[in-house]
Simulated scan of single mutants.
Amino acid sequence: MTDRAETDAVVEEILRSYDTITVVGASANPAKAANEVPAYMREHGWRIIPVNPHADEIVGEKVYRSLSDIPEPIGLVDVFRPSADCAAVARDAAAAGATALWLQLGITSPEARQIAADAGMAYVEDRCLIIEQRRTGITARR
């Protein structure tokens, strides 16, 4: 496991490097963090690509049913799924060519971490994009 300083450096690199966030488990319910976080990041300049098998539009964006349905290159994958689902998401992200995997606050997975490492993906777990964006002050580069 990385120490806090190493994780902080990865967080900052991800926030600086990606202008699009693919959100697996995005929610259409504005009361849920899986809606609030993508909406906030969108307001701060990031493009959002929601992934949810049960919705058509989230935060004003077209929803895709799975990572494999997205018709463009995928960089950063942000995950709002239970820890037990994260290894499968990591495998799907690797298969889709993602280069970074971020598990939201409260979500950890040693197996997802290993899959990400084996695929050469940058990896963050148990961190909130809103908290990290506010801490760093980084905004999207677009």
Rank of each mutant, 00 (worst) to 15 (best):
M1C: 02
T2V: 03
R4K: 03
T7W: 00
D8H: 03
A9E: 10
A9L: 05
A9W: 02
V11R: 00
V11D: 03
V11G: 02
E12M: 11
E12A: 06
E13Q: 10
S17R: 15
Y18I: 10
Y18T: 10
Y18M: 03
Y18V: 11
D19I: 01
T20N: 04
T20S: 09
I21Q: 04
V23A: 11
V23N: 07
A26K: 11
A26S: 04
N29G: 07
K32E: 13
A34W: 08
A34P: 14
N35D: 07
E36N: 11
V37M: 08
Y40Q: 14
M41L: 15
M41F: 14
M41P: 15
M41Q: 15
E43Q: 14
R47V: 07
I48C: 02
I49L: 10
P50S: 05
V51R: 06
P53S: 06
P53T: 00
P53F: 00
E57H: 09
I58C: 13
I58V: 14
V59G: 09
V59S: 04
V59C: 13
G60C: 03
G60T: 12
G60W: 01
E61Y: 07
E61D: 09
K62W: 01
K62C: 07
K62I: 03
V63S: 03
S66N: 13
L67H: 12
S68P: 15
I70D: 02
I70A: 02
P73E: 06
I74G: 11
L76K: 01
S83V: 10
S83M: 07
A84V: 12
D85R: 10
C86S: 15
A87W: 06
V89G: 12
A90S: 08
D92M: 12
D92F: 06
A93K: 14
A93E: 05
A93F: 04
A93G: 13
A94N: 12
A96M: 06
A98T: 07
L101T: 05
L101C: 08
L101P: 09
W102N: 11
L103M: 10
L103F: 01
L103V: 11
Q104A: 08
Q104Y: 09
Q104V: 14
L105K: 08
I107N: 09
T108Y: 00
T108C: 11
S109L: 03
S109P: 14
P110Y: 00
A112T: 09
A112E: 04
R113P: 12
Q114R: 12
Q114M: 10
Q114C: 05
Q114S: 12
I115W: 05
A116E: 02
D118V: 10
A119R: 13
M121P: 12
M121V: 05
V124Y: 01
V124T: 03
D126H: 09
C128M: 03
I131E: 08
I131C: 14
I131D: 08
T136N: 10
G137D: 15
G137P: 10
I138S: 11
A140T: 07
R142D: 07
R142M: 10
